[in-house]
Structure formats: C-alpha cells, structure tokens
Amino acid sequence: MKYVKADWDPRLPGFHVDPGEYLEQLLRLSEDLPSGARKFATDADHYNFRSARCVKDLELADVHVPVGRNESMSIRFAPNAWKHEEGLRIEYVGVTSFSMESHREIDWTEAETVILDEIIPTQDGCVHEIALTDATVLVRCSDLRATWGDG
C-alpha cells in the first residue's frame, strides 16, 4: 500500500498498523475517487478501530470472480465475533484486474482477517488494496459499492 501501514513486525510479534498518512491524503485523493469508492473510503467509521463498522478484523468469507462479462466481482467479509455486529460485502464494477497473493508468514490465525485497506484513484476508476493476515488482495475497477449487513 502506498500510504496505509499494515506491516508484520516480528519484534511484537504482530502488525504495525497506521492509516494516518492515508487519512491525511484522503481529502485530496477522494476528489478523484468514483462515487462508491469515495463514500466507502471517507466513511467516518472506516478507520475508527473502536467502531463496529471499521474494516479492521473482518474475516474473509467469500470471493466471487465472475465468468460472464456482465457480472460484477464481489468479496464478502464475515463479522469478527468480538468486534462487528454485521459483515461487509464489496461489489466491484468494471473490474480490469484482480489478484490475491498469499504470503503464509503467519500460521496462527484461523481465518484470513483484514488488517487494513486503501483505495487509490486511477484514470479509469480506482485500485482497492486489502491487506489480510496472510495475503494481499488487489482489485482495479471502475467503482465499488460497500454494503454492511448479512449480504
């Protein structure tokens, strides 16, 4: 990620997590984000670690990669029982690339959980990068829609 810090620190051992630089840049960046991505990235609870609607600690539940051209891609996150009241579904529109790279550095977690994410504008939409405990998800798309609930 360009601004968000979500790095494994073996000295802790744990993650060094800091969205501060991204939040400083977000006002400027959000002007160029598509509307759905802007709404999600600038939500006051998105990086509020005490909020039930913070993305941190959500658990990866499902990735739907379409085979048809008219379908959208989606990622569903289950709530963390200790923090969230509901899960999150992100639907990506106009996906031009998707990758999920596994790191397998940490072997003590039962589920892939969100460390943090970052949405950066591009000429044709945005790039959404999600740091998970053992993987990184990268989606380039024209826009996204995030929906909290059971969905």
Rank of each mutant, 00 (worst) to 15 (best):
E105L: 15
V95M: 03
T113S: 12
V95Q: 00
V114P: 05
W108E: 02
E110T: 14
T96M: 07
I106A: 03
I115W: 01
T96V: 12
T133D: 09
H128G: 09
P121T: 13
P121I: 15
E91W: 00
D117I: 09
V114H: 03
D107S: 06
Q123P: 07
I119W: 00
C126R: 07
T96C: 07
V114D: 08
A131Y: 03
G94Q: 03
E85Q: 04
I106M: 05
P121E: 13
T133K: 03
E129S: 14
V114S: 06
M100Y: 05
S97R: 03
Y92M: 03
T122I: 08
D124Q: 13
V95S: 01
F98G: 07
L132F: 13
G87W: 01
W108R: 00
I120N: 06
I120C: 05
V114T: 11
H103Q: 11
S102M: 11
T109N: 09
W108Y: 15
V93E: 06
P121Q: 12
E85T: 12
T96R: 02
E91T: 15
S99Q: 03
M100N: 09
P121F: 11
V114L: 12
T109H: 12
S102H: 14
S97E: 09
D124Y: 11
V95L: 04
T113C: 08
L88G: 05
E85Y: 01
D107R: 05
G94L: 09
T109G: 06
I130F: 10
I120A: 06
A131K: 03
E129G: 08
V127C: 11
L88F: 01
Q123K: 11
S102A: 13
I130C: 09
H103I: 15
H103C: 13
F98V: 01
L88T: 08
E129I: 12
T113W: 02
H84M: 02
A135C: 07
R104W: 14
V93M: 02
